[in-house]
C-alpha cells in the first residue's frame, strides 16, 4: 500500500469528518455553520489534490514548460468557493433571524420553546 500516495486523501477525510462532527454534535447554530465551512474547505483540498501532476507547473502557458497541472479542478473549485460564501451568508442571516424570533441560537432552547407552544 502506498501511504504517501494516499496521504492527501486521508487528511482530507480527517478534516471532512471533523467538520461533519461539529455539524452533528454541536447545538450552537453558528458553530454548525463553521463546521459546514470546515467540511467545504476540505472538499476543495480534495479536488485540488486530484488536479496536481508530478513535476507539473502552474497552468499558465509559457515557453519552455511542457507539463502543467490540471486546470479543470481549479475552475470548479473557484466556482465552489464563491458559491460557498454566498450560502454561508444566507445561513448566517437565518441564524440572526432565529435569534430575533427565539432569543437563542442553541438548538435545545429552540426545541424547548417549540414544544411548550
Amino acid at each position: 500500500m502506498n501511504v504517501a500516495g494516499l496521504y492527501n486523501y486521508w487528511i482530507v477525510i480527517l478534516l471532512m469528518m471533523t467538520g461533519f462532527y461539529v455539524v452533528i454534535s454541536s447545538g450552537n447554530l453558528v458553530k454548525k455553520i463553521i463546521g459546514l465551512n470546515l467540511f467545504q474547505a476540505s472538499v476543495f483540498i480534495l479536488y485540488i489534490s486530484m488536479g496536481k501532476v508530478m513535476n507539473g507547473a502552474v497552468p499558465i502557458l509559457r515557453e519552455g514548460v511542457t507539463t502543467y497541472s490540471n486546470p479543470l479542478p481549479h475552475v470548479l473549485i473557484l466556482t465552489a468557493i464563491v458559491v460557498g460564501v454566498a450560502t454561508t451568508a444566507l445561513g448566517l442571516a437565518l441564524v440572526v433571524r432565529i435569534r430575533e424570533a427565539y432569543g437563542s441560537v442553541e438548538e435545545d432552547d429552540i426545541h424547548r420553546q417549540d414544544e411548550s407552544l
Partner: peptide
Amino acid sequence: LDAVDVAFTEAAVGVGISTVLMLAT
C-alpha cells in the same frame, strides 16, 4: 499544489469575507 487562482480566491473570499460575516453574526 499549483492552484494559484484558487489560492488567492480562497485567501480573499474564504479568509476575508467568511470570517468577517461570522464575526458580524
